[in-house]
Design a protein around this nucleic acid. Structure first.
Lengths: 206, 206
DNA sequence: GTCTATACACCGATAGAC
DNA sequence: GTCTATCGGTGTATAGAC
């Protein structure tokens, strides 16, 4: 018996193209400000033809694209961290370099704007994988640093969320005269501040 | 001769109500996901009646509400800072306490999602006041700390933007089981990290 | 698999009575 | 100042020919 993927569209070259252009557009402008016509135009077909490759409609297409993107980030983050040694600073820099090198995903905007538009059920279903792919690898970095006394004991989720927010803010500087090189430098600057601020030392400024 | 405000609607109690509910809805869901009918319902009138108080339409209404909100933040920030002494940490805490105490404004989402939807001209016109009200008071805090040797010499805009992003991330935790008290604690934790990380000391972890 | 054509819903905005 | 009624535009989705 053959495998069937009718619910999400058969795999094909055209379908891959649809997912690729949809991902780029959704990441750039968000769910609400991308139309199916734009996706179809970018994929080189008519709007109605999209529904052959994405029978579930726009929301389902967004969901597929979202899951693909965070899986991509998970692989990239883990690969970057695998070659980054064991110290806190180079590991955080590896995270930042990966993130800055990717197309801006505007994580906070996705969470505050796109997710609620999909409804509570859909949003809840996507929150778990998103956390596992984007947050969890970073929380592990902080947890590891705490375990070896390289960082004070603070909430790893708070630290990871803050780092992601900072990287979003740095990425926001893009298209405002700041290239990838500048973004990397800004991210490294803020990482230095975090690493110094997390260090376990005796004397603290009051 | 009497003052005329025809372009933006006459001042009145009903008009204030419209601006108030519009501000709350725009801040919660963003420009694209709020309809004029929702605003009208919340204000207790029909959709068409909105245009008596907001003749400029939705985009103009958003602009007015946006300018009102950032002016409100400017006043609140400066008042909070006026009673916060001269040291870096209490001043940043004053900023955070003010921000956390206000309705979440999702600054990054507004900048990445709402502003582009208004068009380049409108976005550029709003960017200046937004910077002056939200960013500039915070950059001054960091600049002051650098001037007295309480913080290392880093880009004040980068630091202010990062702090705002962190506060957005902390506010995002709202509605997820975290109350205002928890948000304040999280913000203070991150501010401690920043203050320690910015301190001018001799020994640094490698 | 892609197309044309179109149904259907929603939204912003205007006209004009009261 | 608020209403009803409606227009025009846009966006998603479906039907069905090829």
């Amino acid at each position: 018996m053959r495998a069937v993927a009718a619910a999400t569209g058969e795999p094909s070259e055209a379908r891959e193209r649809v997912l690729d252009v949809a991902e780029a557009l959704f990441a750039e402008r968000g769910l609400a400000r991308v139309t199916m016509r734009e996706i179809a135009d970018a994929a080189g077909m008519r709007q109605a033809s999209l529904y052959h490759h994405a029978p579930g409609g726009k929301a389902q297409l967004y969901r597929e694209v979202f899951e693909r993107m965070i899986a991509h980030h998970r692989v990239g983050l883990e690969r970057a961290l695998a070659g980054a040694g064991s110290r806190l600073r180079p590991r955080l820099r590896a995270v930042a370099d990966w993130y800055v090198g990717q197309a801006p995903m505007n994580f906070l905007r996705m969470m505050t704007s796109d997710m609620p538009a999909l409804g509570d059920a859909e949003a809840a279903a996507l929150a778990g994988p998103a956390y596992a792919s984007l947050m969890q690898p970073i929380t592990e970095v902080f947890r590891g640093a705490m375990a070896v006394g390289e960082a004070r004991e603070l909430d790893p989720d708070l630290l990871a969320g803050s780092l992601l927010a900072i990287l979003d803010a740095v990425a926001f500087a893009e298209g405002r005269g700041y290239g990838e090189h500048d973004q990397r430098a800004m991210a490294h600057t803020m990482i230095d501040v975090l690493v110094y601020g997390l260090a376990v030392v005796d004397a603290r400024p009051t």
